[in-house]
Design a protein around this nucleic acid. Structure first.
Length: 493
RNA sequence: GAGCCAUUAGCUCAGCUGGUAGAGCAUCUGACUUUUAAUCAGAGGGUCGGAGGUUCGAGCCCUCCAUGGCUCACCA
């Protein structure tokens, strides 16, 4: 607050005071505009200079001054609104001495309202030739440089508004993010899914394996946890007969931050009664391909230096076959935990002493296969040890009817035929508790309330979770999750 | 949590072997009624991220700290 004002901030405050002395409000109120920049371009750019002069088309625009040049008795500026920019042509003889003085004193960054006529310059740039010009909001700080925009990544994240004002690519990414989520919603709504809202504060954090954020409710005097997944509440709704539900919402995990991880991130989870994981695979590929086509106009997506083809059907690969293909190790064979550990050692797979067969298969997959799955691939049949909420595979009880979706070497979705047997579910939770005792502090907790709901009967159900931020990264060719989060988590300065 | 790299004017960036701070944009003054990274003439603007240290002398070398980026670890 007590920050010293540099010369530019000083000057802008002086201008502000001079407007007040003239009886002008430097922080104006409502302004009725008739068009956005892009609409004007779309409608009138086709006309010649002469045609426009004859037509005398009026226009009232509002926006932020981004560039400004010329000063004597005429000047130009570009005004930016949500849709883009349009040039302003201001002549002293057209707007009068007083208004021209205001225009002359206007700074880059000021928000202005302009009424005028459509006009074309000698070099053919469509412009608004001003009859009236007023400052709607005086900007008291200089904007980042017009040509390079704001480059400093830290400042782009901490002061996203500056990034949005000066970097069109960044604004495009966030507009795209909104469209992706809109498209997702529309697609599911059309399939008859209901969008619901369930609590973000849980008394038992469940539905995933991750450390939670802890908080406290004073009046109830109880510990609460920010949710790490949406899963268990949506399944209760399936028990309640809602049959096809989804929720798009924030999830919180108290883990490290990276280019692919933010402590709070957005997931969509959906559950469909009477479906299984094969149905969900199909839904997933069609959902994502649909979004890509609707938002990008194509299912072929450029990500970094790779072209990703999202056109269904996508490859389906059993985790054991995937490991076999990339390492030659065959985990279809019956083997003891000790034999599996020996194989891990031979192949340089890092494991922990307490791990069993299924954990080791998963480690093989994560350490040797995951990063190689560039084109969309459903990897299914996850070991039971790492899938406490998924149905057992009827043919081979070591594995579950679960899949994860990998694209560009990253997990994008996780889904399964939901475990609806409350007795099996209780045993799984007990297995998780044992892991917790052995030191896995991310193993699932017992959730008796959820088990009680299953005991009333949950129909066979397919469920899905998609990391929305990662999907947005993929579709906007963004290298870091921070580039698709408006306000990524930062340390206090 | 570990390693590497970065931090210089409001912004984008130079700054040599250690010799005492530079450019462009922006700002200010002046010129300019079709410019567009407008142009021309002039001017002002710096705790070189912070704190120590080495040295006659530090933006530059050393140590610690802060923030950020990338990689790794963690995230089944």
């Amino acid at each position: 607050m007590s920050e010293e004002l540099n010369d530019q901030m000083q000057v802008r405050r002086e201008k502000l005071n001079s407007y007040r002395e003239k009886g002008l409000d430097p922080f104006g109120s409502k302004f009725e505009r008739t068009a956005l920049a892009e609409e004007l371009t779309a409608q009138y750019d086709e006309f010649t200079k002469e045609e426009l002069e004859e037509k005398q088309i009026p226009a009232t625009i509002a926006g932020r001054i981004m560039t400004k040049r010329g000063k004597g008795k005429a000047g130009f500026a570009h005004v930016q609104d949500l849709s883009g920019q349009i040039q302003l042509y201001v002549r002293k003889d057209a707007i009068g001495e007083e208004a021209y003085e205001i225009f002359k004193s206007a700074d880059i960054g000021d928000i202005v309202g302009v009424t005028g006529e459509m006009f074309k310059t000698n070099v053919g740039e469509l412009s608004v030739k001003a009859n009236e010009f007023e400052i709607l909001t005086k900007s008291l700080r200089p904007l980042p440089e017009k040509f390079h925009g704001l480059k400093d990544v830290e400042q782009r994240y901490r002061q996203r508004y500056l990034d949005l004002i000066t970097n069109p690519e960044s604004r495009d990414t966030f507009v795209m993010r909104s469209k992706i989520i809109q498209s997702m919603r529309r697609y599911l709504d059309n399939l008859g899914f209901l969008e619901v809202e369930t609590p973000m504060m849980h008394s038992i954090p469940g539905g995933a394996s991750a450390r939670p954020f802890v908080t406290h409710h004073n009046a109830l005097d109880m510990e609460l946890y920010m949710r790490i997944a949406i899963e268990l509440h949506l399944k209760r709704l399936i028990v309640g007969g809602m049959e096809k539900v989804y929720e798009i919402g924030r999830v919180f995990r108290n883990e490290g931050i990276s280019t692919r991880h933010n402590p709070e991130f957005t997931m969509i989870e959906l559950y469909e009664a009477y479906a299984d994981y094969h149905d969900i695979m199909s839904l997933t590929e069609h959902l994502i391909a649909h979004i890509a086509k609707e938002v990008l106009g194509t299912a072929k997506v450029q990500y970094d230096d790779q072209e990703i083809d999202l056109e269904p059907e996508w490859t389906r690969l059993h985790m054991v076959d995937a490991v076999k293909e990339y390492t030659g190790v065959d985990f279809w064979k019956e083997m003891s935990d000790e034999e599996a550990k020996a194989l891990a050692k031979d192949h340089g797979i890092e494991i922990q002493e307490t791990m069993t067969f299924g954990h080791i298969v998963n480690e093989f997959f994560e350490q040797k296969v995951e990063e190689k799955l560039i084109q969309p691939t459903f990897v299914y049949g996850h070991p039971i040890e790492i899938s406490p909420l998924a149905k057992k595979n009827p043919e081979d009880a070591r594995f579950t009817d679960r899949f994860e979706l990998f694209i560009v070497g990253r997990e994008h979705a996780n889904a399964f035929s939901e475990l609806n047997d409350p007795i099996d579910q209780r045993e799984r939770f007990e297995g998780q508790l044992k892991e917790r005792e052995e030191g896995n502090d991310e193993a699932h907790l017992m959730d008796d309330d959820f088990l009680e709901s299953l005991e009333y009967g949950m129909p066979p159900t397919g469920g899905l979770g998609i990391g929305v931020d990662r999907l947005v990264m993929l579709l906007t060719n963004s290298a870091s999750i921070r580039d698709v989060l408006l306000f990524p988590q930062m340390r206090n300065k």
